[in-house]
Every structure is written in structure tokens, then in C-alpha cells.
Write a protein that binds this DNA or RNA. Structure first.
Lengths: 148, 148
DNA sequence: TGATACTCATTCGCATACAAATGAAAAATT
DNA sequence: AATTTTTCATTTGTATGCGAATGAGTATCA
């Protein structure tokens, strides 16, 4: 068998960044974020949407807890919540029992903006997975979850 | 068949952010970036590594071209290249034929740092995919590429 | 009770990531 | 040759994302 050029010099296998998982993960995430931003009407980012949606499920809750539930760093969730508060989607209140905590809850506007964008969020998921068949989607999601 | 609680009110299916592709993609990417940062010795980020590795393949080339090859925005590749130049891994020179272009090339230190970290980069890929079997990895990579 | 450890929120610094605007230079078109 | 379009690099502004440090409050345990 014909040896490749680098095998003549050494046994080191070729390395190509653009064939590594990390390279694809970054790109896939980029594509999804772009699709989401494009489809959503209220200039909500994917992380802001995650925070809002999760807050609807578990409110009231503290900032750090919301961060854990949405896989965001304390510094990250702080910035996200700040922007949502600034836009009037989230309200903050001091916790009576725990002086450190800030209790988060959705405002009326917050509930409204969620309701107005659920279908767009679903559509973004759909478009992201569009290149895959139904069977491939299930397989892909299962494997993707394993490496989280 | 027993109807679920929300079906009694409306036909709207449940929506859970933490079951959407985007949620998993962000987390999977986060995990890989963390693994890479942890394993690499020279404080190189995943994007910096991509730029260095790709530059080795295609040098000399312009900044924008390197950005396209590594799937980075013009503003993003600018910042990445700036930091690599600052650390002495990449050299810049004006293009003789095209007055707009900045020709990029690797320095000796750049080649050295690549050689010193290829094994760590391979290990990071390996660790990221560790939860998957060999067969699952091939399947996963194939599907992941489809949604890039 | 008092020391220790933990949790929560905040802040700083650094590094992506992209939209949008700008200016310069090159290429394509008329 | 003149106009238009494209390309390249840069800059500004906004939004994640994480490490690390800080300070305030809570919990634990000797």
C-alpha cells in the first residue's frame, strides 16, 4: 500500500481542526443561534429565552438557581437577568427568609412575550433540525445529550 | 385514553426549553470548551487553536480568508488574530498585490506551540466524545455535520 | 457560642460572536 | 474611462461565557 507523505517521515497521523467535534459543535451552535435570532420577533437571544421559559416553570426562584437550571454561570445569568429586568420582563424582590437572595418572577409583559414567541421558538428548533429525518433527530438528540 | 392537564384546556403541546436542540448544543459546546481549556497547556482557546491549526494548513493567507475557513465573523477573527499576534504566534505583513490585504503567517513560536499542543487537542476531542461508543461517535459526527 | 464552611449576588477582566457602519482598494460592468 | 459592485480590514455596540475575587448572609459543627 502506498504510504502517505507524512508517514514516510513519521508515524504521526494527520490532524485537521475542521474534522474535530469542537469545530462542529461551535458551528452548529452558531447556526442555531442565527436561526433563532432570525425567527424571533422581540429581539430575544437564546439565553434570554431559556431564562424566561425556565423561570415560567419554576418561579419564584433565586438568580443563582435559575442559572443552574439553565446551565449558566453566575456572572452570565446576572447579565441575562439584568437585561430582562431592564426590559420589564422579569421582576426582582428581596427574599424575606434569606437576606442574600433576590427572588425572581415574571411580569405580565414577561408572560406576554413568552406566549407571543413560543411558536417561533418551536419553529427555530424545527429549522435547526430540518436537515435530519425524524429518525435521525431522535438519534442525534439522544447522543447529543450524552455529551453534555 | 386519559387526557393530560393542558389538553383539557387547549391542544397546545408542552414546551420545555431544556429539551430543545439549542439548549443541548449550547451545553455540549460549553463542556467541550471547558475540557479543551483544561487540557491545553498554553492558555489557548478553542478558537485560537482553530485559527492556528488552519493557518498552518493554508498559510500564507488573508485575515478574512482565515475567518471564512474557520467559520468566524470578520470582527471575531480580527480579535482572535490580534491576540495571536500579540503573543508572537502569528506574523502580519502587507500584501504586495492587494493594498487591502494583511498577509498572515505562523512564526517559529507559532509552529512550536502547535506542535506542543496537538496531542492535548486530540485528547480534548477524545474526552468530549468519551460518553459515546465508537459506533455512536461516527453516527453523531455525521449527524452533527448535517446541521452545521 | 464561636470558628468554619458554604451560598448568594456582585464585580472585574478577558475572550468570543455578530450586526452594522466606515473607508480603502480591487474587480466587474457599462 | 467612469460607474457600480465587491472585497478587505477596522471599529463600535451589544450580548454571552467563564475564571477569579469580594463581601454579605446562612448553615454547620465542634
Amino acid at each position: 500500500m502506498q504510504k502517505s507523505r507524512e508517514d514516510r517521515q513519521s508515524a504521526a497521523p494527520e490532524y485537521h481542526v475542521d474534522r474535530q467535534v469542537g469545530f462542529f459543535l461551535r458551528q452548529a451552535n452558531q447556526r442555531h443561534v442565527a436561526i433563532f435570532a432570525n425567527g424571533i420577533g422581540d429581539k430575544l437571544t437564546t439565553t434570554q429565552w431559556s431564562a424566561l421559559s425556565k423561570l415560567k416553570e419554576i418561579q419564584p426562584c433565586s438568580q443563582n438557581q435559575l442559572g443552574r437550571e439553565t446551565a449558566m454561570d453566575v456572572a452570565t445569568i446576572k447579565g441575562v437577568v439584568d437585561r430582562l429586568v431592564k426590559r420589564g420582563f422579569v421582576a426582582t424582590a428581596p427574599d424575606q427568609n434569606d437576606g442574600r437572595r433576590v427572588v425572581l418572577s415574571l411580569t405580565e409583559d414577561g408572560l406576554t412575550v413568552i406566549a407571543a414567541n413560543v411558536s417561533a421558538a418551536v419553529a427555530a428548533t424545527e429549522e435547526t433540525l430540518a436537515p435530519l429525518t425524524s429518525g435521525e433527530r431522535m438519534m442525534f438528540l439522544e447522543l447529543l445529550q450524552k455529551i453534555c
